[in-house]
Structure formats: C-alpha cells, structure tokens
C-alpha cells in the first residue's frame, strides 16, 4: 500500500534537515503507529506525504499503490486515496460543513472520473456516518470547524475521512487535546473504518490512543529516522520507560 523509501526532507527556506532517511512500509489492512518525542519529525512526515508547502524532499520516494505521490499536487494525492487527519484542523468561516463535505466528495469523484453523488444519497450517507461519531445536524450546518471544541474538530476530521473513504489514512496526533470520552468516540469512528483494503498510520505521543485503536506495528521515530519497530508491546514499553532507553540503544 504505502512504501516510503529513504525519505530525506529539509525545510524549503532554511537548512534545517528534518527527515534523515525514513523507511516504512504499510501493508493493506494494517494499522501502523508512529511514536516519538517532540521534534522527531512525525508531523513533518505526515505533512510531506500529504503535500504541504514549505518542505523540500532532498532524497527518497513515497509510493502509494504504485504511484510516487511526492510528485503529485495535494489534491491529486487525495484523489489517489491518501487522507491526513490534521492535528490542528483549520476553521473556515462562511463555508457550511455540509457544503464543504459535498464539495470534497464530488471533487474526488470527479478526479477519479466518477459521477457526482446525488443530494439524496449524499445526505443519507452523511447522516449515517455522522451518527457513529455523535455529530448532530447542527454541527453539520455550522461553518467548518468554527467554534467547534477540540473534540468536535477531531470528530469532524474523522467524519471527513469516513465520507472520503481513503485507502491510506494518516492520523496526526488525533488524540491531542481530547478527553477520554472524546478519544473513545474518535477511536470508535476510526475502528469502524478498518477493513482489509484500508491502512492507517497513527501518529501519537501516547500509548493511550493505541489502547483504543490497536496497532499491528509500532515504530519509534527519533531525530528524523525510525529507530525501532515492533509489535504493540513497544508502545507499552515507551509508556513505562519513556524514549530515553530506546534512543540510547539506537545510538
């Protein structure tokens, strides 16, 4: 599904090198988690994969189903099946959540050469998927993320994911700023989307989220590299002992 090879990334306008050779393969249907201390490059990896401006790939590739997505525009990556749930979802005053969702769904369908979804089908689908995430009609009507609580914003990200049905989902610190109940709700939404053809890359600081979204593989990232990979037990080790031991070991 997703294959990242020897990815090196620096900031466009500065010399700061952030990713120093990331190698990562996510197989279809699997959930991979990336943990790591602040500044290790986790969020940068998610931004670079989704095509945010401001970064320069100096070496390496990222293949999604046989396409090197680093050569695509952000919207083309989305149409290719990539989705990033933002750590800080953006507020868009004056654009209704529902309008936004429909515009996004139709833009992707158009890019894939499919017919636009009919209003009735769309409404039915949104209502059904919003219900799982405890998103009410009022929240769907409001402008995108404006005045939403932290939890509402993250649930809204997962709703977009549910509507766009991407094959490769990246969750960037989706648990940050959430209380336990909100986190459970988000995890429930994510788990509902798990299937044999869809993969996840879950970026988080804490093992907590991984209690609810159980990963198949856990990677530890530090200073722009993945320094260790293992099973779910690795996350528990980090929770218990911190990153210091693993970092020391890697050196």
């Amino acid at each position: 599904m997703l294959e990242i090879k020897n990815l090196h990334v620096k900031l466009k306008d500065e010399d700061t090198v952030i990713l120093k050779g990331v190698n990562l393969t996510v197989e279809p249907g699997r959930v991979h988690a990336i943990m790591g201390p602040n500044g290790s490059g986790k969020s940068t990896l998610s931004y670079v994969l989704s095509g945010r401006d401001g970064y320069e790939v100096t070496a390496g590739e990222a293949w999604l189903d046989g396409v090197n997505i680093l050569e695509l525009e952000p919207e083309e990556r989305a149409a290719a099946g990539l989705f990033l749930a933002f750590q800080y979802p953006v507020e868009i005053p004056g654009v209704g959540n529902m309008t936004f969702l429909r515009t996004a769904v139709n833009a992707q369908r158009k890019a894939r050469g499919q017919e636009e979804i009919s209003s009735t089908d769309f409404l039915k689908l949104v209502r059904e998927r919003a219900k799982t995430l405890d998103i009410d009609a009022e929240m769907l009507k409001r402008p995108v993320n404006v005045g939403f609580s932290g939890g509402e914003k993250k649930r809204n990200e997962i709703l977009q994911m549910a509507m766009l049905e991407p094959r490769m989902c990246i969750l960037d610190e989706t648990d940050s700023g959430l209380d336990v109940d909100a986190m459970k709700l988000v995890a429930k939404g994510v788990n509902a989307l798990r299937d044999a053809d869809r993969s996840f890359l879950v970026i988080t600081h804490y093992q907590r989220l991984l209690d609810h979204i159980e990963p198949d593989v856990v990677h530890i990232m530090s200073a722009g590299r993945i320094i260790r990979s293992g099973g779910p037990e690795l996350a528990i080790e980090v929770e218990k002992n911190g990153y210091a031991d693993i970092k020391a070991e890697a050196v």
């Binding site: 989704s50 095509g51 945010r52 401006d53 525009e73 952000p74 919207e75 990556r77 989305a78 149409a79 989705f83 990033l84 933002f86 979802p89 953006v90 868009i92 005053p93 004056g94 654009v95 936004f100 515009t103 996004a104 769904v105 833009a107 992707q108 890019a111 402008p143 977009q160 766009l164």
Partner: peptide, 27 residues
C-alpha cells in the same frame, strides 16, 4: 494553511481558492 487543508481534501487549487473567496465574503 487553509488552502492546503482544502486541497488535502481533494479540492483542486482553483476550486479551493473560490471556496475561500466565498468564505471571505460571508461576513
């Protein structure tokens, strides 16, 4: 950042820009 957010959801740049124009005029 807002433009990137919209594009990451699959909106082509021109369409995303138009949506932000409407958002700007909304007030």
């Amino acid at each position: 950042d807002t433009l990137y957010y919209l594009r990451s959801r699959g909106l082509p740049k021109a369409e995303a820009t138009d949506l932000l124009v409407l958002s700007f005029l909304a007030e």
